[in-house]
């Protein structure tokens, strides 16, 4: 393992987000806080409790998940797409580092950013709505695993994308809808039976459910299923990335 190279890549990626702190930190924190203000404090007080939890508190895990997913994907995808776009990726490809080390650098940095953002948003949320965290360690585990998995997905998108449009496509057209429909704002028990079944095909349901379990001790599905699912997603992402480097897809002709 070439630790110096991994650290160098990781630090450069972190420095890039510090240079753009408004966009990479302030903006997601602000937009998520707006949800807390509107749905938590303002409207939330007029909505009845969901499964015995005040609505404002109920949506906190889902909103953090929403932010975590979109930020992980966009951070990681931009991280690898930009050097490809500018051409400076030549240096990374010609460096004495393995694909695994490249992934560690880029995905590690993207996941770190998302985790830090998640914790900031968690802290911000507590300013607007009161909530509890029953299983803090489980909460952290979900935070880390989700950030890593979706940073891996972002890395794949950043390699697949051949323009800025495709880069935005997945976060906007896939991640956001799936999160909104994945139980962020409601318990899936509130849906008609048919849709409850359909929803089980939405991977985000398992993430939100597991994350919510770590807060309030209850979720739409068992926490172990949630954990199993996220590990499965991570495994799939790793297999895809392995295949990408093996074939040289979009990186090495």
């Amino acid at each position: 393992m070439n630790l110096t190279s991994v650290k160098t890549l990781y630090r450069a990626e972190m420095a890039r987000s510090l240079r753009t702190i408004l966009q990479s930190v302030v903006s997601p924190v602000l937009s998520t806080s707006l949800y807390f203000v509107v749905f938590g404090s303002a409207i939330g007080s007029r909505i009845s409790e969901v499964e015995g939890i005040p609505y404002g508190a109920f949506i906190v895990p889902g909103l953090i998940m929403l932010m975590l997913l979109t930020q992980s994907v966009s951070n990681a995808s931009f991280g690898i797409f930009f050097p490809r776009f500018s051409g400076s990726v030549y240096e990374i490809l010609s460096a004495p580092i393995s694909p695994l080390e490249i992934v560690l650098g880029f995905v590690g940095a993207a996941a770190t950013k998302s985790i830090v953002l998640g914790l900031i948003v968690l802290g911000t949320a507590s300013l607007f709505v009161p909530f509890t965290i029953e299983h803090p360690l489980m909460m952290l585990l979900f935070l880390v695993l989700t950030a890593l998995t979706f940073s891996l997905l972002g890395f794949i998108i950043g390699i697949w994308a051949d323009g800025f449009e495709k880069l935005q496509l997945v976060p906007l057209l896939v991640i956001t809808p799936l999160t909104f429909l994945g139980g962020t704002f409601y318990s899936i028990d509130m849906l008609p039976p048919l849709w409850q079944t359909v929803t089980l095909f939405n991977p985000v349901v398992y993430l939100v459910s597991g994350f919510r379990y770590s807060f309030y001790g209850l979720g739409d599905v068992s926490v172990w299923i949630s954990l199993g699912m996220i590990l499965l997603f991570m495994a799939v992402a790793l297999v895809v990335i392995h295949a990408i480097f093996r074939s040289g897809y979009r990186l090495k002709p």
Binding site: T8, R11, A12, A95
Partner: peptide, 10 residues
């Protein structure tokens, strides 16, 4: 400096 680190040199 990044280039040096990327190639694994202290």
């Amino acid at each position: 400096s990044f280039s040096r680190g990327l190639f694994g040199k202290p």
